[in-house]
Design a protein around this nucleic acid. Sequence first.
DNA 1: ATGAAAGCGCTAACAG
DNA 2: CTGTTAGCGCTTTCAT
Lengths: 327, 327
Amino acid sequence: MVTRKDVAKKAGVSTATVSRVTSGRGYVSEEAREKVQKAIGALNYIPNNIAKSLTQNRSNVVAVLVEDLTNPYYLQILDAMEREGAKYNLIISLFAVNKNDIDMVMTGLIENRVCAIINLALFACNEKYISILEELEIYTVNIKPRNVGELRIHLNHALGIDSICAYLRDKGRRRLAYLAALGEELVRQDERLNAYLVSRKKYGLSEDDRLVVFANYPEERAFAVGYQSAKRLCERDVPFDSVLCMNDSVALGAMKYFQEKGFSIPAQVCVIGCDNIFMGQYVTPSLSTIDVETERQGIAYIRAIVRREGPRTEEIRATFIPRESIV
Amino acid sequence: MVTRKDVAKKAGVSTATVSRVTSGRGYVSEEAREKVQKAIGALNYIPNNIAKSLTQNRSNVVAVLVEDLTNPYYLQILDAMEREGAKYNLIISLFAVNKNDIDMVMTGLIENRVCAIINLALFACNEKYISILEELEIYTVNIKPRNVGELRIHLNHALGIDSICAYLRDKGRRRLAYLAALGEELVRQDERLNAYLVSRKKYGLSEDDRLVVFANYPEERAFAVGYQSAKRLCERDVPFDSVLCMNDSVALGAMKYFQEKGFSIPAQVCVIGCDNIFMGQYVTPSLSTIDVETERQGIAYIRAIVRREGPRTEEIRATFIPRESIV
DNA sequence: ATGAAAGCGCTAACAG
DNA sequence: CTGTTAGCGCTTTCAT
């Protein structure tokens, strides 16, 4: 293994000088820099990032926590994070967590001195980790229960949901159901339900309680939850003419149920999802949805990590995207 | 920060003994073990994995390389790898690579002394890395051009494709097209095309060359490739009554095109994908496909890494799964 | 069965 | 501008 020492010897300088040129910090004469670079090339030197991490007490791994690995929405964010992260030599790692194992995952991440933890999942971690995370200066997003501290990305779902309700009212659809997917506890952290309740009132849509269907996502896969929720909605036999879903996967599952039952979409029932996953454009009918700028979210996270940004809220505009699944 | 030294002091032993109990290697008296464990608990000690990695010249990160982050198929493998990897304290990291940046990614992985690289992508890395990977004893799968060396997972697509051709022949469908998605060079590494050519001959299906459509995946997104390929197939106006696709995402894209054009599926055209992604069950009509045991693949990779398995081939049975998209 | 001590490869404070 | 040196926290001989 060729190390900094070899490079230093070959270049006729000290290891400190080698460090100076590789890190780009500190003064190095042009002459020394050239010699070092030549030596690096000649020796085919590859730095050992682990050693570097040890001295800095921090690695270059960013952990992204999600509750559902199969949700394409997260992948779109990850994709953006990865491309942006590559610019800063950051490695992005995805972790699936559930209520039970999030603490185990956290322990692992701390042991590995990840440089940041972006919690996209619905679960908060145990309070006992907070002080450790702070001591180690691990940059966290959405780790603490109330998410005080670092960057907060606020998905302003209300905007998109408001547009949808307005749109439906104009089309004469007044019975919009909501498939919340989550159970009654988790749903409290989800703005969407509330935005739906506010908007349906605002635009004079039906306020029947039975139009809201809860379920047990993420314990159960999103597609299955959507399918089952649509079924339960039908069984309640409360009239409805359109369905808003917590995310696109749930919407796809719901659409499947409606289509199996012979409902015509959108004539009999409009279906609207949330997150604007690519796939939504390729189903039939194509899925109406709410775009939440996944690209921008991913980039914002990386920038915040790199700059170690303090408390700041980035507002994401949720935009209604009508497609074939809506009248 | 509490370190091994603190634990050692508190427990009244040396750091070496602490290491022995945490690693489980070497002799430790029951008494010492207990004292150490008590100290660890009392101090809330969290080991520093980076330091460990430095001494072993290897981290606990497994890198998985894919050419298309948005392909749910990879996610299903990743999911299995992650669950299995957690048992061994392994961190699984996903990387998107393309022909141009695979070398950059490789450099980064080597710098980080990842313990394994699983290349699920279609591109091989530059030869120059091979010797470094060997020297550092980085466990690799499918990194070397001919994949000599470690575990090889052989997806026996031929089996599934054979069943499909037999099935279609029995149904009187003799004009099966193939959407290869890849360009002419990459397609050579793909068994599917060849299996298709062999089986269509074997069962007396049409051998018209125009039934095969190439494209430029992964440069272009799979859905779009499928859509475009279906379009091109139609424009060739060669008769066809069924379409086999390189993967499920391509199939979904193709289905979209056919549905837009008013083809009825499966009456006028059967569509069959490959990989059995969950979503395939939730589109209408549900997608016929070839299952390739993603769970087993993921587990096999992790086991191979942990055991540092030598050359071995694991055969995956590709099983035809008929659904609504086929007669 | 246990402890002392020498690294692992790099960074950064300090001296020059 | 550059070199010396003391760690970073852990593992692992080598003695004992």
